[in-house]
Write a protein that binds this DNA or RNA. Structure first.
Lengths: 245, 245
DNA sequence: CTTTGTGAATATTTTCACAGCT
DNA sequence: AGCTGTGAAAATATTCACAAAG
């Protein structure tokens, strides 16, 4: 087996990879920060706030306020000088940019502990990602209920995905089965795969593969742990000094 | 409750945030890519390869080969021209940079489905993150076994963490309890917190808070889904064209 | 006084392209 | 041939600093 793939998980621009695309598009970094802003906004809205400044958001999510303001300008200029941004409006704006509205149905494969944990978690449906089908390969589990779903035979996955119009697949199976499951998802017309199995899988390059490997994330952390005892963290608050001469 | 925090999850340089630090340090982006390289290397080693080129790694992880080569130069120059890199050596090199060797003991809080899934997952211990204690607040669970551990009362967490020298805390509890757990971890001297609860928590700024929110990651994906049907993905292979005049 | 929006200045990252080693 | 290591260029991202607006 030669090593030759096109896994492509870490691109950098929205438009295209070519060096000289005019790039009228939104920088990837902005898109990456948007969900954090959204999370922050939803949380402060719950606390009763109606309005928020870039400085406040910055304190929350650890981003320089000027950068936040510039991020927002990619989508227009709302926000009142001297006041800040209307939280409701900002939320719907960001949701609009991220393309909310379309529902993206999820197929969950793997009814083990992890699968059950994902089912429990209401964050997915709350944000427009309803789980609509659950699969497993274990005859013991097939036919039983998990959450409000009957666990289906994984062999029916491609057909079921097509029939139900499922576009997002979540892999929560052991590493050894992950590639097989991914292949079936591809056959079923998946557009996005969220892989929780601790193994690299290969998919055609028009499919967005998201790897969620806590170990990888922890390894990254390790580096900061071993330096000077000082972990990575920005003292962002040294910013926006306003000098009044 | 006023909005004023210092959550600081998204910094950009290893050294310090100040604009003009001489910055002899490794760019954060490099450190972020290292675990992917490592994962790739470990996997190809298992497949029996001894040597690998930047181009091959690039195909695997979706990074431009030139960038990979430059990343490596931050840690020295190994790698044979015309051949590539020795996989074993490269692995140990990266592990060295990331600071392997020190074990980082983990306390897991939350013995629900998610906690059980994390326990199952052998990736953590395999990479030097052994789980050494599990906590819960449910009297029904306390005293019972999970994996090979007796579930402890979460109220003993600070003391136990100190006694066992635990530096990493994993939060796998409902959102409503997350902040309380985080506070106890801080009291116990935690250095890194991995938060799986779907809520933002605040910690002192010398503690590395890692948020693992699959929704946030999916939201980001959404954006790419809605553009032109073309999901983000680099056709990296249009690169390193070697023109021979 | 507060805070946005933004040109301009900086800083950083990524990529190209090729000399040089095997 | 095949590949690394790296200056130099290009592309991006971040931050400063301030005029204008509420």
């Amino acid at each position: 087996m030669p090593v030759e793939f096109n896994n492509t998980v870490g691109a950098k621009e929205v438009t295209l990879m070519k060096p000289n695309t005019p790039s009228p598009s939104v920088p990837d970094g902005v898109i990456e920060r948007l969900p954090s802003y959204l999370e922050c906004l939803i949380q402060v809205r719950q606390e009763g706030l109606r309005t928020i400044s870039s400085q406040q958001i910055g304190g929350y999510v650890g981003v320089n306020p000027a950068e936040i303001r510039r991020d927002f300008t990619y989508f227009g200029t709302f926000g009142k000088k001297g006041v800040g941004y209307n939280i409701d409006y900002l939320i719907s704006k960001i949701q609009g940019v991220l393309g909310f509205g379309e529902e993206h149905k999820i197929a969950l494969v793997g009814a083990g502990n992890l699968g059950r944990a994902i089912c429990d978690y209401d964050g997915l449906p709350r944000h427009g990602f309803p789980i609509v089908a659950i699969f497993d390969s274990d005859p013991q589990k097939i036919g039983k209920k998990l959450d409000k779903f009957i666990i289906r035979d994984v062999r029916t996955l491609p057909k079921t995905m097509k029939r139900l119009g499922i576009t997002v697949g979540v892999i929560a199976v052991p590493a050894s089965a992950a590639q097989k499951v991914a292949d079936m998802m591809v056959e079923g017309g998946v557009k996005v795969i969220l892989n929780y199995a601790p193994i690299m899988i290969q998919v055609p390059e028009n499919i967005y593969l998201h790897i969620t490997d806590p170990v990888k994330e922890l390894l990254h952390t390790l580096y900061y742990l071993s330096r000077t005892g000082r972990t990575r963290s920005s003292s962002i608050m040294e910013k926006e000094k306003v000098f009044t001469t």
